[in-house]
Amino acid sequence: MNRFTFVDCTTVAEALDHLKQGSVAKAGGIDLLDLMKDGIVSPSMLVNIRRVKELHGIETSEQGLSLGPLTTLSELAAHPVIQKTYTALSDAASHAATPQIRNMATVGGNLMQRQRCWYFRSSEYNCLRKGGSECFAQKGENQYHAIMGNEICAMVHPSSTAVPLMAFGAQVELTSKKGKRTVPLNEFYIRPDESLLDETVVKSDELITRILVPAPAAGTRSAYQKYGEKESFDWPLADAGVVLVMDGNTCRSASIVMGVAAPTPLHAKAAEVVLAGKTIDEATARAAGKAAVDSATPLEQNGYKVQLFHTVVYRTILLASGQLKRDPSAVGGMA
């Protein structure tokens, strides 16, 4: 790991004073230390925000949920209101990584993780994201890579919490010395065709100061499921967050987001259209699952992920609507 200076801040104002070229904010530090140990990033200063009190805490109200970005994944998973009203979010938080990592990792840091790609995360490969001229995944080992939006760069974004947060229509409050702005999570991530060097809209002098989730409409039901090779400590091969606004058995509207399908978490708009106004049953759920992957462009080794996403979308729709129990083959399904 490179040498760096460390500044321990206790307020947002102190942290903003130190956020400049070469410095980087550190919350739980899991992904940051991982990247630093592998020499992928080498900041000259770590701005420690973990002890900033105003960035902690979960507030619930009639307007919705206001999450301090330093809320740990364990805290999200254990919160009774989130479990009841924002079920997909607590499910996603409770199935990410390991208990120890969930005790340390924060929801803000989870959103800010860099993408997963073993070429990007190896210092041996100077890929497009690092200013090189080639995406090594296109013709290389690409079994875990993106099946959509993968023409330029095939990395996947691994944030488990981004999937339900986006499905719930969350917004991210960003603060810099110039002031605050609020960005829908839907517009938070930057696709490779927009920029290869910026992965989120967060500027180097900005901090995430709040994550806001609007209160779900009456009749809302939600679910999240993840498939992986291992039951614990594994990034998903496919995951989906589904938020349904139901009127009896009829779906008034659906919000469906897929993780690790593309370089950014992705709304399955075609699947949402299939469900709107329909009675949810096995047939409509399967049709929505199929629509979700219609535009897939798999690489040589990841065609299996197309079927996996079809399955995770339709089974998570049925789980959200209460017509199916958690899939025993999904992560956490056996528990």
Partner: peptide, 15 residues
Amino acid sequence: KVPTLACMTLAIDVG
């Protein structure tokens, strides 16, 4: 008392 990974924690961050 919270189980934590010592390899992914900076000593200076423990306060």
